[in-house]
Design a protein around this nucleic acid. Sequence first.
DNA 1: TAATATATTTAGAACGATTCTAAAGCAGAA
DNA 2: TTCTGCTTTAGAATCGTTCTAAATATATTA
Lengths: 123, 123
Amino acid sequence: MTKQRALILQIVRSAEGHLTAEDIFREAKKELPGIALATVYNSLNYLCENGMIEKICIKGQTDRYDKMFVRHDHRLCDRCGAISDVIIEGLHEYIEKQGDANILSYDLTVHSLCPKCRAAAKQ
Amino acid sequence: MTKQRALILQIVRSAEGHLTAEDIFREAKKELPGIALATVYNSLNYLCENGMIEKICIKGQTDRYDKMFVRHDHRLCDRCGAISDVIIEGLHEYIEKQGDANILSYDLTVHSLCPKCRAAAKQ
DNA sequence: TAATATATTTAGAACGATTCTAAAGCAGAA
DNA sequence: TTCTGCTTTAGAATCGTTCTAAATATATTA
């Protein structure tokens, strides 16, 4: 765990939302001005492989990174693009029962409207 | 619906598996040797927007395209990378009930081992 | 401590997938 | 026909990400 990796982990963990590699790079340079973008990618891959953070991949969007405290999925607002976390209880078992008994894991993105956009759409 | 678009739709519809743009380009050139890769991408986008085919996006992989007969999700073999279709009855309602009452749609990729790899893993 | 081996970082080039651009072509409407 | 507006083509450009090679840092052994 080098100081670059520690910094990047801390940035992801303390972030409000879900950051892109570029966001993290920009943030990291404030602390370590000489850090290279490649190091950000290397570190993010390292942290993912070691289960310390999670990569979020959404159709047509740049990948983002998320702290990994509890297993959860993501909700994408189809209107404004906001990404939020969503927990769906018992989904693993449900998929196992209804779709594939041998499931190892799953990636889910739920599309909906965030409260703000839902309100706006009602006007 | 130009002859290029019709050809590309037919290629996607008659394909065994799930093709990448490059696969489709290669196939299309057999019929229309002068077709451009950009046309393949344009046509695929057009066909997607009009609900005639579907784009499959899986973490870290090139996008693929799928005929759209019934609503279904995809299963990725974590060992050999094979992609197959999976139907999970009542999933929309399940997510609505357990996770988000305002769901519009969802993208799901189930990770598992295909029968071949499951057999091989048992050895 | 010095010498060696291993891993990480840096900087920038390279890459792959996809989109953009500008020119040319085509189809339908006036 | 001529005009208008899509579509196609070819190739350049773009974006996000990975690779490369050299430099640096860290750990290991003598």
